[in-house]
Write a protein that binds this DNA or RNA. Structure first.
Lengths: 189, 189
DNA sequence: TATGACATGTAACATGTTACATGATTCT
DNA sequence: AGAATCATGTAACATGTTACATGTCATA
């Protein structure tokens, strides 16, 4: 049981899903690919942690709709209540930003522009996702129903962070602009 | 040249460092361990991207103080101006939070408490780091000097995010409290 | 007519983590 | 006396990424 396995169980705790669905959904919160997920699903099934229902389709391969077993639910509970390890973050952009000081203005401008574009796209993406969640809620004439609670709070978190990122970019631009002259002199020493 | 290699070059662009120093410093922005870093440094040195100065010590192993070569600086510039890949984020806490809805109140409370503690520690850590950077700046009677610019803006970013995280936790607690009854009924159906 | 979504899987390779290995000095 | 810091390295194992493999349907 590695962390990705528990992630799959987490998603399956809301509703039965296929490997394909899981691949798409988990990527909102956890970087992975189908090549890592399909083999794990097979293992989890062999160990009786999840079960599958075959759904025949024409043209496409048969769907394997997975759901948690009792054993899977128990495992999930144990994991949720155990110690949580630190986040693994590997962001190439961060490493590049560290070098802002040794870049000329064009390069620095380009990099910050790239980052701002990324944040802008994220803001759109997460706003859309929240709108979608809210419209799904209205169908049941409630506010966010329990089954969507996790997705809702995490999407809101991601949106907060993207908005904060945008502000940070502006702050850095201002700082950088003030330092113009000292940077240039460093460049030629 | 993988991303970690470029990360090492980024850090070395500020000042010469040993593998030991690099391991500590890069972990502020990029998860890694010395076991991954030492072999990479050897490779980079073989390819003439970095060079080392041996510093003899008694008791401890000799220090290998690495610095960028001309070739290394050129590589660094090329990388910084090339396309940046998306961040890899794997946060176990996020996966657990997704399941908040299927947890009883005690478990949910414990998890949020754990997260709040983590954010609190981060806030302290990054505030200290910023204070230290500022005091180092005053020695040179400037504001943040160019060589510390990258570390300064990235630490500020990390601090912003930790503070935001704290607020988010409060928001989630409120939301969760409002939903108390519906959650409990779900628990027993 | 070409791209993308749907849907599953394997294989080769790259990367990351943990444990092992050594050893002096300083702090508790 | 024992743990933490400094300082480097290797080996075994776990995990992640990319490319290969197949095939239909809908959209641009």
């Amino acid at each position: 049981m590695n962390k990705l396995s528990y992630g799959l169980l987490s998603l399956l705790s809301t509703e039965p899903m296929t490997g394909y669905d899981l691949t798409l959904k988990i990527n909102l919160f956890w970087r992975s690919t189908h090549s890592a997920i399909y083999p794990l699903l097979s293992e989890l099934e062999e160990e009786g942690i999840i079960e599958l229902t075959l759904i025949k389709q024409n043209g496409k391969p048969d769907k394997k709709l997975y759901h948690l077993t009792k054993k899977g639910e128990e495992l999930l509970y144990q994991w949720v209540t155990s110690e949580t390890s630190d986040a693994v973050v590997r962001d190439e952009m961060t490493l590049k930003l560290y070098c802002l000081k040794c870049m000329n203005m064009d390069a620095a401008d380009k990099l910050l522009g790239e980052l701002e574009t990324k944040y802008k796209r994220k803001v759109e993406k997460y706003r859309n996702a929240i709108d979608k969640l809210k419209s799904r809620s209205e169908e049941y004439s409630e506010d966010i129903p329990p089954s969507l609670f996790g997705a809702y709070i995490l999407t809101q978190k991601a949106l907060n962070e993207a908005l904060l990122g945008q502000k940070w970019c502006e702050w850095v631009r201002d700082l950088y602009a003030k330092k113009d002259i000292s940077f240039l002199t460093e460049d030629f020493n």
